[in-house]
């Protein structure tokens, strides 16, 4: 039997995060037995669901696992990982679970964690490839320390595991958890803000990035969106600066859009933005830096000052429309 790769399932409110299947896909690609590890107060339905794509499911049950807490999950998983020594432990590089649990578990297991991997392999231990220096370089990194080695995987980097005809076996275990060392008390969950206009509905979206430079320039883009019959949206720094409402943000911590036409101005093309727009039909990018990563996702690119392009777009569209 091949080495076990444990994939920590992510779920909230009884709903499985489908990207967990990408971890199982990564585990298969590594040539291992793809084991889904699910922690919950009632893991049975999730375990059953995971068993269709995993070779095996470990379901860890405890009342204290009703919400995700880093302390609860680490107490459930660490002793078992020490005892069984899987080949590697994978989780999503996620805001919800991975960023807290990944380093915590790595610390308790005294092992190395390679963050935000886009590819994985073996080289006397786990190796991972990740983009660094704003995606200008690719680093091949190797986990040191005691196995099992760990990695977090970038969303969308691995193909989800396919469902198989013979469901994987489910092993049910009762976790031992000290309820007063969970780390957090969960108070509540709140849905993202939606702005006055719902950008996810728009057919045409013009996006201002940090390169717009100020509120005035950002606001002036509304003229273009009016002419195009579309919506104005932004990247995160534009929201952070207070130039746009949070409801207008596209990306991993904002909205995911799929318009027929996306025009990005002064947008560098960081992965956290790109995940929210790369499915757009036609992508146009304006950036003064010819090496900006956004051009790798665009259909049409212009290396220019966005103000000059914006002004001409407005003029020429007005003329066109008469």
């Amino acid at each position: 039997m091949s080495v076990e790769i444990w994939c920590i399932a992510e779920h909230r409110g009884g709903v499985l995060d489908a990207d967990t299947l990408q971890l199982l896909g990564a585990a298969r690609k590594l040539g291992g037995t793809a084991v889904a590890v699910v922690c919950a107060a009632d893991p049975a339905p999730l375990a059953e669901q995971l068993s269709t794509s995993a070779d095996k499911v470990i379901a860890l049950r405890h009342e204290a696992l009703s919400d995700f807490t880093p302390g609860g999950y680490a107490q459930a998983i660490a002793p078992l990982a020490r005892e069984r020594q899987p080949g590697a432990i994978l989780m999503l590089h996620s805001h919800f679970l991975g960023r807290d649990l990944g380093p915590l578990l790595a610390s308790r297991l005294e092992t190395g964690l390679i963050s935000d991997c886009t590819e994985l392999g073996w080289d006397e231990g786990l190796v991972g490839w990740r983009l660094v220096y704003r995606r200008k370089l690719l680093a091949k990194q190797k986990a040191a320390g005691a196995p099992p080695h760990m990695a977090t995987c970038q969303r969308g980097a691995f193909m989800p595991a396919e469902a198989s005809d013979s469901p994987g076996e489910i092993e049910n275990l009762e976790a031992a958890i000290e309820a007063d060392s969970l780390g957090w008390k969960v108070l509540g969950f709140e849905e993202a803000e939606v702005g006055d206009e719902d950008i996810t509905e728009a057919e045409v979206i013009v996006v201002g990035g940090r390169g717009v430079g100020d509120q005035e320039t950002f606001d002036s883009m509304r003229e273009l969106t009016k002419l195009l019959g579309g919506a104005l949206a932004s990247t995160r720094p534009v929201v952070d600066q207070g130039w746009a409402d949070r409801g207008l943000q596209i990306g991993s911590s904002g909205k995911t859009v799929r318009p027929r036409l996306y025009i990005g101005m002064g947008v560098s093309g960081a992965i956290q933005h790109v995940v929210g727009m790369r499915e757009s039909d036609v992508i146009v990018a304006v950036n003064k830096d010819a090496r900006a990563p956004i051009f790798e996702y665009a259909d049409y690119g212009m290396v220019a000052d966005l103000k000059e392009i914006l002004q001409r777009l407005v003029e020429q569209l007005r003329e066109m429309r008469g």
Binding site: F96, F189, A192, K255
Partner: peptide, 8 residues
């Protein structure tokens, strides 16, 4: 993810 919030 998605700009949702968790209060703890």
């Amino acid at each position: 993810e998605g700009g949702n919030y968790l209060d703890i």
